[in-house]
Amino acid sequence: MDKTLSVLHIIRSVDISQGGTIQAIIQTIDNLPDNQTLEVLCLDDPKSKHVLNFNGKVHAVGPVKGVYGYSPKLKQWIKTNAHRFDVAVIHGLWTHAAIGGWQGCKSANLPYVIFPHGMMDPWFKKTYPLKHLKKQIFWYYQGKVLRDASEVLFTCEEEKKLANGVFLGYSYRPHVVSFGAPDVPAYKFNGREELSKVLPKLGNRPFLLFLSRIHEKKGCDILLKGFAKSEKRSDLQLVMAGPCDSNLESELKEMTVSLGISERVHWPGMLRGEYKSAAFNQAEAFILISHQENFGISVAESLAYGKPVLISNKINIWREIAEGNGGVVSSDTVSGAIEVIENWESLSLNEKLMMGANARKVYETNFTVQKATQDLTNALIRATKFK
């Protein structure tokens, strides 16, 4: 492609503490081809720290209220500025970023693709049936966003398969694109020394790393129960790293006391930069017994570090990991958590090292940012020709 491709990304928020959706944009910015430009449109308050500190050109038309976040400014901004862009990317469902983004793009004749980012997973239907009923009613509008998109982009075959038939009405054009995680950053530090600043009680003891949001869908409770009940080395620790915007972390800490593992579980909060890298570097393995995970950026990041992943089969990239022997997979239950921990503990040192090497191969084969960038670029080019 000779001509510069100007792309507008539309998202509810650029706050990285809200989950993995914004990571897709951050990775695209960090690996943007020379013949592309990228701007972000969001519903955040333009004075918020995450907007002011965002590493890219961002236009914030908030503040807005509630989860949905209605603002008439979104559609108007797109209509006013659409002439500067060739194509748009809408991220996520169920907020005004999707509905207002669709309205703006359609009225300005700006072609777009949309990433559902796992928000059509049947787990939500099973777990929150009343919410699902409300979403089915709202699908009258939300479904049109998918219908009118050039393509609905799923990040793996499993996500595409699970989404099929979850909501009734409106057909759309599904397409699977690669989704990636950044490679290991070139930090120069002593990993344990850095970790001691955020995990002073960990010492030099071995640990499994949970690095994700502290949220009910992440299976934190079953992980703690599985860790407590599993047969393991007496000095093996568990690091629970991630942000929490509810009382769940306090409840989980109380659970560790009742389970008798409070001295073995560590809560450093959200880790970033060199501290996050140190945690990946020093962990024996990564663990996530999630009930639903569209892709799992942190899972792919662990693979990049050559760390085996101990995960549930509700993480949509589990097949690639199992086929490549880059980790241990079981169910999203307490018995599943026990199984992956005890399977890990049963391995010899050489077997663990081999699994780590396999983890890196799985990353290089499936989840590099370069591959994801090329797949998205191809989808955007197709979108510019969509009528």
Rank of each mutant, 00 (worst) to 15 (best):
I99Q: 05
A97Y: 05
R147L: 06
S196T: 13
L93C: 02
C105A: 15
V87M: 09
Y112T: 01
E216P: 12
I114F: 00
R192H: 12
K217P: 06
P116K: 04
H117V: 02
R147Q: 14
C156P: 01
I137C: 14
I90S: 00
K126S: 14
T80K: 15
E157P: 05
Y187M: 03
H215T: 05
V145W: 00
E193F: 10
F179T: 03
E194M: 14
E151D: 13
A163S: 15
K218R: 11
P174F: 06
E151K: 15
L209T: 09
T127S: 13
L93M: 12
M119F: 02
K144W: 01
H132M: 04
A108C: 11
W123E: 06
F138A: 15
C156S: 15
N164C: 14
Q142R: 00
G92F: 00
L199V: 10
V166C: 07
W94C: 07
H117G: 03
A98H: 09
F189I: 12
V198A: 10
F207P: 00
P122C: 08
K217R: 15
S212C: 13
L168N: 12
L133E: 11
L146I: 06
Y140W: 08
L195H: 11
K134A: 15
E193I: 11
R147N: 13
K201L: 08
F210C: 13
K135G: 06
Q142D: 14
K134H: 06
V166G: 14
L211T: 02
A82L: 08
F154A: 10
L211S: 07
L93V: 02
W139V: 13
V87T: 11
D148A: 09
D183W: 00
S212Q: 12
K160D: 08
V184R: 01
A82K: 04
E151H: 08
F207W: 11
W94V: 11
G180A: 07
G118N: 02
Y112K: 02
Y140C: 10
L93P: 00
P185V: 04
Q136G: 05
L162Y: 10
R205N: 14
M120E: 09
L209D: 13
A163T: 07
K161C: 11
G143H: 04
A149W: 00
H91C: 01
I99Y: 03
K134Y: 04
V87D: 10
K197R: 15
M119P: 00
A186C: 04
E158L: 07
P206D: 10
K218N: 11
K135E: 07
N164R: 10
P111T: 10
K160P: 00
D121H: 02
K135A: 11
C105K: 01
W139M: 08
H132F: 14
H215G: 05
T80V: 07
E216W: 13
C156I: 03
A163R: 01
N109Y: 12
A88Q: 06
F154N: 04
R173M: 07
K218C: 15
